[in-house]
Simulated assay, not measured.
Amino acid sequence: MCGRVPDDLLKFVSGPPGYSWWWLWLGCVLVVLVIAWYTVLLVATMPSQKLRGIPAIRSLHSRVLRYRFARTAREITRRHRHEELSRVQASAALSRTLRSFLHQATGRRVQYMQLRAFADTELASAATVLEALGEAQFDDTSTADVDRLGARTEELIRSWS
């Protein structure tokens, strides 16, 4: 009698319960989110010259680059408007931002180039903005409107291809 289970109790014995399909979908979504997160980190932190060589990431990287530097130019202009930065400080920061963007976007060492060297390159459209920013920064008699120059800098960055 020890080893035998009565037949009426067997109806309560069953296998483990099955898993819900929601857990599978949740796991798949989490894997996709992790892959997307690592892709964003890669684009945000990898040096630009390496990213320009990867065709699939090239357009995403250029969009992120334009957005980031345009936002920086807009922030500098806002700080000048609220008198947190002087005309000289704002124009120097805008010039530095534009030169850094051009370096990241083209791979040229724009930070060390003189404006005369811009004429023979694809950077010619940026020379007029950089010249106006330099005048606002170094010429005490300049009547340059830094807010307008900030808008021109932001527009140049946004429209860069």
Rank of each mutant, 00 (worst) to 15 (best):
Leu33His: 01
Leu94Thr: 05
Glu122Lys: 06
Gly3Tyr: 14
Glu75Ala: 08
Glu83His: 09
Leu133His: 05
Thr106Ala: 09
Leu130Asn: 02
Pro6Ala: 10
Phe12Gln: 05
Ala144Asn: 01
Arg96Phe: 14
Tyr38Ser: 10
Glu122Phe: 05
Ala151Phe: 07
Ala90Asp: 00
Trp25Met: 11
Met1Pro: 09
Ala36Lys: 06
Arg96Lys: 13
Leu98His: 01
Leu94Arg: 01
Ile76Ser: 00
Thr39Leu: 13
Arg71His: 12
Trp21Phe: 04
Asp120Trp: 03
Val34Trp: 05
Met113Trp: 10
Arg87Gly: 03
Gln111Pro: 06
Ala93Phe: 03
Arg63Asp: 06
Gln104Gly: 07
Gly150Leu: 06
Glu154Met: 07
Tyr112His: 14
Leu149Phe: 00
Met1Trp: 05
Glu83Phe: 07
Ala73Met: 11
Asp145Leu: 01
Arg71Ala: 14
Gln111Asp: 13
Gly3Thr: 11
Gly107Met: 11
Phe101Pro: 03
Pro16Thr: 14
Thr106Trp: 06
Ile157Asp: 00
Val129Trp: 08
Leu149Gly: 02
Ala90Gly: 00
Leu10Cys: 11
Val13Asn: 03
Val29Trp: 13
Asp8Gly: 06
Leu51Cys: 02
Val32Ile: 15
Ser125Leu: 13
Gly107Gln: 04
Pro16Arg: 14
Ala90Met: 00
Arg63Val: 15
Ala73Gly: 15
Ser14His: 15
Ser14Lys: 09
Ser48Gln: 12
Ala151His: 03
Phe12His: 11
Thr128Leu: 11
Ser125Gly: 14
Asp147Met: 05
Arg148Pro: 09
Leu9Lys: 09
Thr39Cys: 11
Gly18Asp: 10
Asp140Ser: 15
Val29Asn: 10
Ser91Val: 07
Arg74Glu: 07
Ala70Asn: 11
Val64Glu: 13
Thr39Asn: 05
Arg152Asp: 08
Leu26Met: 05
Met113Pro: 10
Leu51Gly: 02
Gln111Leu: 11
Gly53Lys: 14
His80Ile: 04
Pro16Ile: 10
Arg52Gly: 05
Thr45Phe: 15
Ser91Trp: 01
Val32Gly: 15
Pro47Phe: 12
Ala44Glu: 12
Arg71Val: 01
Asp145Glu: 02
Phe69Gly: 02
Arg74Asn: 04
Leu60Val: 04
Ala127His: 08
Gly134Asp: 08
Cys28Val: 15
Tyr19Gln: 15
Arg58Ser: 01
Asp147Gln: 12
Phe118Lys: 02
Ala90Phe: 00
Val29Pro: 02
Leu94Glu: 00
Leu149Ser: 04
Ala44Phe: 15
Gln89Trp: 02
Asp140Met: 09
Ala93Gly: 02
Leu94Trp: 00
Trp25Arg: 13
Thr121Glu: 02
Glu84Phe: 01
Asp8Gln: 12
Val40Lys: 09
Pro17Glu: 08
Ala117Lys: 10
Lys50Gly: 12
Ala117Trp: 12
Lys50Trp: 14
Trp160Tyr: 01
Gly18Tyr: 10
Trp37Leu: 14
Leu115Lys: 01
Ser159Ala: 05
Thr141Val: 05
Phe101Asn: 08
